[in-house]
Design a protein around this nucleic acid. Structure first.
Lengths: 218, 218
DNA sequence: GAGGCTAATGTCAGCCACTGACAGTTGACA
DNA sequence: TGTCAACTGTCAGTGGCTGACATTAGCCTC
């Protein structure tokens, strides 16, 4: 589902479809092995063997061991950026960011399901937050995304991201808060999509008040 | 290190001093090689050879290849935390953070010099920001620091960091902005301490206005 | 549908980061 | 001075990752 093709059969020839299947199989196998026995405890040979390809083939699909973990995440991020681009120009920056996140959360479910079970993806998210090597990779990716968002916001407001600090500053604040929300969610009990959505919303609502000088006054 | 030694001149016996010298030599050699020929292009064997120790010995001082890069950074961060702890309780959270950073910037110079030339440290900072593997490590470390700061701020305000989102939210916003400032500085021309200090100050001043709804109104 | 073209894959050799085990060396201290 | 413990070197081995080359298999033309 979510494929923009008229026919049920995916685009391209047999070769293309075969590649897609191998890629998806590698992602599924990797996430299953990682979440079951741990990231460090799983070798790439095991993943390759589970899909019946050589280790060398794995590295032709993914540049390194980490990349396969973030394949689904990448889809979600693309979805968010799309949504942000479609927000009305009248919305204030922080409002647009907030709205885009909320809409994205409501729609990614089905997109994820086309590659891996949502539950597996959620377990993977938690694994990322508890594996040092993956936390690092996750943060680096988030940082790249942050840069993209900042340029997008600057574009909306007709500003130059290199001379006016405000786009990068709001986005930095926004992304910082988003990361914290994700982290707190990962440590909590409820691992549902609804749960992370609520948490995100609540944390974003606190940016303004938290910046204020006197917390005790409210 | 961090031993409660009564004397300042001889921090211990001959053995202790020898260890300290080896450690400092490894840091200096590593930073010099990394900044000269690149991080990825430098092997640990080269670093070890430059200090006349075995590769195995390097790994007894540093857990991995990245760690040696952040040895100086660690000192700076410790200095900042110290400063933050000493800020008067009357100061608002964001103000205290801001002040602590400014004071820290003014004092770290001499502390750094005791291990490596400040200029080498500044070049290292730039290398970090332009090496993917090090960016990731840097962000992970920053994330850990962020957690410490959040707990400290929560303590100041008499709040529980796990129930009240505000400490983590301000700190996330603050640290996000700090990272952006560091990044922008790394891409600029002027690599002086004064330069990063000014930039930091300017960016922090923009948090409030950037959160506001209408940027065009000001 | 036989042939050539080319993308995808397998195999192999090798580099480098990192680790455990064991042995040799050298400060510390009685 | 001799013993103990800490520090270091050597060696062997694992796992991530890459380049080179041979092999397989989809695609396209005649």
């Amino acid at each position: 589902m979510a494929t923009p093709t008229p026919q049920a059969a995916p685009p391209g020839g047999l070769r293309e479809r075969k590649k897609q299947r191998t890629r998806d199989a590698l992602i599924r196998a990797a996430l299953e092995l990682f979440t079951e026995q741990g990231y460090d405890e799983t070798t790439i040979d095991e993943i390759a063997e589970a899909v019946n390809v050589s280790q060398r083939t794995y590295f032709r699909y993914f540049a390194n061991k980490e990349e396969v973990v973030f394949a689904v995440q990448e889809m979600v991020e693309a979805r968010f950026l799309e949504e942000l681009r479609e927000r009305p120009a009248a919305e204030a920056p922080l409002t647009a960011l907030r709205s885009a996140v909320m809409v994205a959360w409501d729609e990614i479910g089905s997109a994820i399901e086309s590659v891996v079970p949502v539950e597996l993806h959620m377990r993977s998210y938690r694994m990322i937050e508890s594996t040092p090597a993956l936390i690092a990779a996750h943060l680096r990716r988030s940082s790249d995304l942050e840069e993209q968002i900042a340029r997008l916001i600057a574009g909306r407001e007709g500003l130059d991201v290199d001379t006016d600090p405000r786009p990068r500053v709001v986005v930095a604040a926004f992304c910082g808060v988003m990361r914290v929300a994700g982290k707190v969610w990962g440590e909590g009990e409820d691992c549902s999509v609804a749960s992370i959505r609520t948490l995100t919303q609540s944390y974003l609502d606190h940016i303004g008040p938290a910046i204020d000088d006197d917390w005790r006054a409210r």
